[in-house]
Each structure stands twice: as structure tokens, then as C-alpha cells.
């Protein structure tokens, strides 16, 4: 009797806290989406009307479009490189034993636990000093390097889970069937790791696409969507910024759903 009551009570607590945390997580997101449809010039309530006016403004605003382009470019390059390096590192970290395995794992993973702003600053110093010696200044390419440093460990961890659950004897089996090293990768290893690699790529894209801290420190005068919004908050904003935010959400939610679907199959 008491156990049943306890069970009922635990259910209420658990589902209640789930509801609470989801509301908590989505408050700012829905606030932004709501404000993006505000007809008036100011971010105050009540709305003067509901319209898509600011979405139109967004596509006429060259700065915003530039930022969109920069974000996309940085995210695509970062995704490709970080996923490739991260996948290889995952195989080395999980499957191989060599001198310094532990040191390798630590080195490959430690940027995960490093505050992004500080990483950005440390890299900014590095690029400034190098830039003075080698004559370059910060911009899109330094931002991409920063993103890769930060995002590769994420990609590695995601792929590592897949590698960990991967039965390596199928590679031996393929070799026994007559496959060369390249054919083993092409027909067996890559197809089997693919769900992990694909979700790693999606996460890499999203982390880079929405990254503020590193871009802010490392992109020089180049603006991406997040830094564009940050500067907008400071100036005293209009519903243009919530509209940009809403645009940023769309690929995110689609990709996360896709990644999840893939990992289940």
C-alpha cells in the first residue's frame, strides 16, 4: 500500500519535473519566436500586430545576409574537417593501443572541458603573435581553426560511442574474404560507423553554426549570425533579431531530429 503510494508519488515528481524543465528550456526559445512576429518596431508587449514584416527586412538587410553566409561557410568547412579528424581520433582512441594512449585521449578530449571564451582568448593571443610574425590578421580562417579545435573533441566522443559498440571481428572477416585494407574501410568499417559519423557531423555543424564565443574572439571584423545578434542586443534591438534567431532554429531542430532517427536505426 505504502509502496504503491510511493510509486505514484515518484511518477508525479518525475513527470512534473520533466514538464518543468522542458518549459524552462523552451521559455527563451518561444519568447524569441513570438517576438519575431511582432509588427511594431519595439520589443515590448502588447504586440502592435502580427506580421512577417521582419522576415522581409531580414532578407533585405545585407549585413544579416552576409552574417548568414559567413555562418554557413564556417560551419560547413568546420563540419567536414572536425568530423574527419574526430572520426580517425575515435578509432585510434578506442581501438588502438600504443605508447601514450592515455595522453592521447586526454589531449584529444580536453578542449571539451575548457571554457570557450578562454579558449577563444588564448587562441586570439596565439594568432595575434603569430600574425605579427607571419603577417596575417584574424578573420574567417582563424575562426574556422578555433571552431575545429573546439568541435573535433565533440565529434570524436560521438563517433567513439559507435566505435566502442563495433565488433572488430567483422573487419577480420572482410580481410579473410579477400578485402584489401582500403576495401575493408569502404565496404565494412565506414558503412558500420556511418550513423555515428553522421550524427557527429550534424552536431559539429550545429555547434559551429551557432557558436558565439569563438567567433567573437577569432573572426576579426567578420560577422556571423550569433555575433551579429550580440551586437544587436547591445544597440537596442528591433524584432529583426528575434527573426534571425528563429531562422537559426530551423535547421537545428530538423538536423537534431534526423540525427536521432538515424541513431535508432
Amino acid at each position: 500500500m505504502i509502496a504503491r503510494l510511493e510509486g505514484r508519488f515518484i511518477d508525479i515528481v518525475l513527470w512534473g519535473s520533466l514538464a518543468a524543465i522542458l518549459i524552462f528550456f523552451y521559455i527563451p526559445i518561444f519568447t524569441l519566436i513570438a517576438f519575431s512576429f511582432q509588427e511594431g518596431r519595439f520589443l515590448t508587449l502588447p504586440f502592435e500586430g502580427i506580421s512577417l514584416r521582419w522576415y522581409g527586412e531580414l532578407f533585405r538587410n545585407t549585413n544579416a545576409l552576409n552574417a548568414l553566409w559567413n555562418s554557413t561557410l564556417i560551419a560547413i568547412i568546420t563540419t567536414v574537417i572536425a568530423t574527419a579528424i574526430g572520426t580517425m581520433a575515435a578509432i585510434a582512441a578506442v581501438r588502438y593501443r600504443f605508447r601514450g594512449t592515455d595522453a592521447f585521449r586526454l589531449l584529444a578530449g580536453v578542449p571539451l572541458a575548457f571554457p570557450q571564451l578562454l579558449l577563444g582568448i588564448v587562441l586570439l593571443l596565439w594568432f595575434s603573435v603569430l600574425g605579427r610574425m607571419l603577417d596575417f590578421s584574424t578573420g574567417i580562417s582563424t575562426a574556422i581553426i578555433g571552431h575545429i579545435v573546439y568541435i573535433t573533441p565533440f565529434a570524436m566522443v560521438i563517433v567513439a560511442v559507435q566505435v566502442y559498440n563495433f565488433d572488430a571481428t567483422v573487419e577480420d572477416a572482410a580481410r579473410d574474404c579477400g578485402a584489401s585494407s582500403f576495401e575493408v574501410y569502404r565496404y565494412v568499417t565506414i558503412p558500420l560507423l556511418w550513423p555515428g559519423i553522421f550524427s557527429a557531423a550534424i552536431f559539429a555543424f550545429l555547434l559551429s553554426w551557432g557558436n558565439f564565443y569563438l567567433t567573437y574572439s577569432l573572426a576579426g571584423s567578420t560577422r556571423t549570425l550569433p555575433t551579429f545578434i550580440f551586437s544587436g542586443i547591445a544597440i537596442g534591438s528591433s524584432p529583426l533579431y528575434p527573426a534571425i534567431a528563429t531562422v537559426i532554429f530551423i535547421p537545428g531542430i530538423l538536423l537534431v531530429i534526423l540525427a536521432n532517427r538515424l541513431r535508432r536505426t
Binding site: T169, V170, D172, A173, D176, S180, L192
Partner: peptide, 27 residues
């Protein structure tokens, strides 16, 4: 291993999970 006239049946079978039976046998 790929060039030896031997063929192995593995303890855990090591069938390729992403290939059909026909693709496995024909690999």
C-alpha cells in the same frame, strides 16, 4: 589474410550486419 587460400568461420560469426544474406555470401 586476404591472399591466403583459407577461409574462417568466426566464433561470433562476424556476419556483416549492414548486408543482406545474399550480399554476405557473395562478398
Amino acid at each position: 589474410a586476404a591472399k591466403r587460400p583459407t577461409s574462417m568461420v568466426f566464433q561470433k560469426l562476424a556476419l556483416f550486419p549492414h548486408m543482406t544474406v545474399a550480399e554476405n555470401i557473395g562478398f
